[in-house]
Deep mutational scan, measured.
Amino acid sequence: SRHTFEINGERWTVEGVSEELKEILRAAERASNDEAERLLRLALKLI
């Protein structure tokens, strides 16, 4: 499935992501810059 999210003013669209990964991306959208970066690094390990 496709998911579009915005982090630090940048929009991203990813396809074929699991519900778990979507949850991480949604958390990154709400997080501070440092926390968002940490969550994105974690998410990339899952891809």
Rank of each mutant, 00 (worst) to 15 (best):
residue 11 R to Q: 15
residue 3 H to P: 06
residue 25 L to W: 02
residue 25 L to Q: 00
residue 25 L to N: 00
residue 20 E to F: 10
residue 29 E to D: 04
residue 43 A to F: 15
residue 36 A to M: 07
residue 22 K to T: 11
residue 8 N to W: 05
residue 32 S to Q: 12
residue 16 G to K: 05
residue 15 E to V: 13
residue 5 F to A: 02
residue 25 L to D: 00
residue 12 W to V: 11
residue 37 E to K: 09
residue 35 E to Y: 05
residue 2 R to M: 11
residue 34 D to L: 11
residue 11 R to N: 10
residue 25 L to I: 04
residue 31 A to S: 10
residue 24 I to K: 01
residue 2 R to L: 14
residue 7 I to Q: 01
residue 46 L to E: 06
residue 27 A to K: 12
residue 16 G to R: 04
residue 19 E to R: 03
residue 18 S to W: 08
residue 4 T to G: 04
residue 44 L to M: 09
residue 38 R to G: 05
residue 46 L to K: 07
residue 19 E to F: 06
residue 4 T to E: 12
residue 21 L to T: 11
residue 26 R to P: 00
residue 8 N to C: 14
residue 40 L to W: 06
residue 45 K to Y: 14
residue 7 I to M: 02
residue 31 A to G: 05
residue 7 I to K: 02
residue 25 L to F: 14
residue 11 R to T: 15
residue 18 S to I: 04
residue 37 E to A: 10
residue 24 I to L: 13
residue 31 A to M: 05
residue 3 H to D: 14
residue 22 K to L: 15
residue 18 S to L: 04
residue 9 G to A: 02
residue 44 L to V: 11
residue 26 R to I: 10
residue 9 G to K: 01
residue 1 S to C: 15
residue 6 E to K: 02
residue 6 E to F: 14
residue 26 R to G: 07
residue 19 E to Y: 05
residue 4 T to D: 07
residue 8 N to R: 02
residue 30 R to D: 08
residue 4 T to M: 10
residue 43 A to E: 01
residue 44 L to K: 07
residue 34 D to E: 14
residue 15 E to W: 13
residue 30 R to Y: 07
residue 11 R to D: 05
residue 43 A to Y: 09
residue 32 S to L: 08
residue 4 T to N: 08
residue 17 V to T: 06
residue 14 V to H: 01
residue 39 L to E: 00
residue 34 D to N: 10
residue 31 A to Q: 03
residue 14 V to I: 12
residue 8 N to A: 08
residue 32 S to K: 09
residue 41 R to M: 10
residue 6 E to T: 10
residue 27 A to Q: 12
residue 29 E to M: 05
residue 33 N to P: 15
residue 11 R to V: 15
residue 15 E to G: 05
residue 8 N to D: 11
residue 14 V to W: 05
residue 47 I to P: 01
residue 45 K to A: 14
residue 13 T to R: 03
residue 41 R to F: 07
residue 14 V to Q: 01
residue 34 D to H: 11
residue 36 A to I: 06
residue 41 R to S: 11
residue 33 N to R: 15
residue 27 A to H: 08
residue 13 T to H: 09
residue 12 W to M: 05
residue 24 I to D: 00
residue 11 R to P: 07
residue 38 R to P: 02
residue 28 A to I: 06
residue 16 G to Y: 12
residue 2 R to N: 12
residue 23 E to N: 12
residue 38 R to I: 10
residue 15 E to L: 08
residue 10 E to L: 10
residue 19 E to G: 07
residue 20 E to I: 10
residue 32 S to H: 11
residue 44 L to E: 05
residue 8 N to L: 14
residue 18 S to T: 13
residue 41 R to D: 12
residue 7 I to F: 04
residue 2 R to T: 15
residue 22 K to F: 15
residue 8 N to T: 02
residue 28 A to S: 03
residue 21 L to Q: 03
residue 7 I to V: 07
residue 25 L to G: 00
residue 27 A to Y: 05
residue 38 R to L: 09
residue 35 E to I: 07
residue 20 E to R: 08
residue 12 W to F: 14
residue 6 E to Q: 06
residue 21 L to M: 08
residue 8 N to S: 04
residue 17 V to C: 15
residue 24 I to A: 02
residue 14 V to M: 08
residue 47 I to A: 08
residue 6 E to R: 02
residue 13 T to I: 14
residue 5 F to M: 04
residue 11 R to K: 15
residue 36 A to G: 05
residue 16 G to Q: 07
residue 35 E to S: 04
residue 27 A to T: 08
residue 27 A to W: 08
residue 17 V to S: 05
residue 31 A to K: 03
residue 30 R to S: 10
residue 27 A to P: 00
residue 15 E to A: 08
residue 36 A to P: 01
residue 6 E to M: 09
residue 39 L to D: 00
residue 30 R to G: 11
residue 14 V to S: 02
residue 30 R to M: 13
residue 6 E to N: 06
residue 35 E to M: 06
residue 29 E to C: 04
residue 37 E to D: 12
residue 23 E to H: 11
residue 8 N to V: 03
residue 33 N to T: 14
residue 29 E to K: 04
residue 42 L to K: 07
residue 1 S to I: 13
residue 28 A to F: 06
residue 22 K to G: 09
residue 32 S to I: 08
residue 8 N to H: 05
residue 23 E to M: 12
residue 37 E to M: 11
residue 31 A to D: 02
residue 42 L to M: 09
residue 1 S to V: 13
residue 32 S to V: 09
residue 42 L to H: 08
residue 5 F to V: 08
residue 33 N to L: 11
residue 13 T to Y: 12
residue 29 E to L: 06
residue 36 A to H: 03
residue 44 L to F: 06
residue 32 S to R: 07
residue 34 D to Y: 09
residue 46 L to V: 09
residue 3 H to I: 14
residue 47 I to V: 06
residue 13 T to M: 07
residue 11 R to C: 15
residue 44 L to D: 03
residue 39 L to P: 00
residue 25 L to V: 02
residue 20 E to Q: 11
residue 25 L to K: 00
residue 12 W to D: 00
residue 38 R to N: 08
residue 13 T to W: 13
residue 27 A to N: 09
residue 26 R to W: 06
residue 42 L to T: 04
residue 9 G to N: 04
residue 43 A to H: 02
residue 23 E to F: 08
residue 2 R to H: 11
residue 15 E to S: 10
residue 21 L to V: 15
residue 47 I to Q: 03
residue 2 R to V: 14
residue 41 R to K: 14
residue 8 N to G: 05
residue 21 L to D: 00
residue 2 R to A: 11
residue 44 L to T: 07
residue 39 L to M: 04
residue 15 E to C: 15
residue 27 A to V: 05
residue 26 R to A: 12
residue 33 N to S: 14
residue 24 I to C: 04
residue 40 L to H: 03
residue 4 T to K: 04
residue 21 L to A: 14
residue 1 S to L: 13
residue 9 G to F: 03
residue 12 W to I: 15
residue 21 L to N: 01
residue 46 L to T: 07
residue 27 A to S: 09
residue 34 D to S: 11
residue 10 E to K: 10
residue 18 S to P: 08
residue 23 E to V: 10
residue 4 T to F: 11
residue 6 E to S: 03
residue 12 W to T: 02
residue 22 K to W: 14
residue 38 R to Y: 09
residue 14 V to R: 00
residue 15 E to T: 12
residue 17 V to D: 07
residue 33 N to K: 15
residue 20 E to K: 08
residue 30 R to E: 10
residue 46 L to A: 06
residue 18 S to A: 06
residue 7 I to S: 01
residue 45 K to V: 13
residue 40 L to A: 02
residue 15 E to Q: 10
residue 20 E to S: 08
residue 36 A to D: 01
residue 46 L to S: 05
residue 27 A to G: 05
residue 5 F to G: 02
residue 16 G to D: 13
residue 6 E to D: 07
residue 23 E to Q: 12
residue 11 R to M: 15
residue 22 K to Q: 12
residue 30 R to A: 11
residue 36 A to V: 07
residue 18 S to F: 05
residue 19 E to I: 07
residue 10 E to R: 08
residue 45 K to P: 05
residue 35 E to H: 05
residue 41 R to C: 14
residue 17 V to G: 10
residue 1 S to D: 14
residue 45 K to C: 13
residue 32 S to T: 13
residue 20 E to V: 09
residue 4 T to L: 06
residue 21 L to R: 00
residue 38 R to A: 12
residue 10 E to V: 15
residue 26 R to L: 13
residue 47 I to G: 03
residue 47 I to W: 05
residue 43 A to V: 14
residue 37 E to P: 01
residue 20 E to G: 08
residue 16 G to T: 11
residue 33 N to C: 12
residue 10 E to D: 06
residue 47 I to L: 13
residue 3 H to E: 15
residue 4 T to I: 14
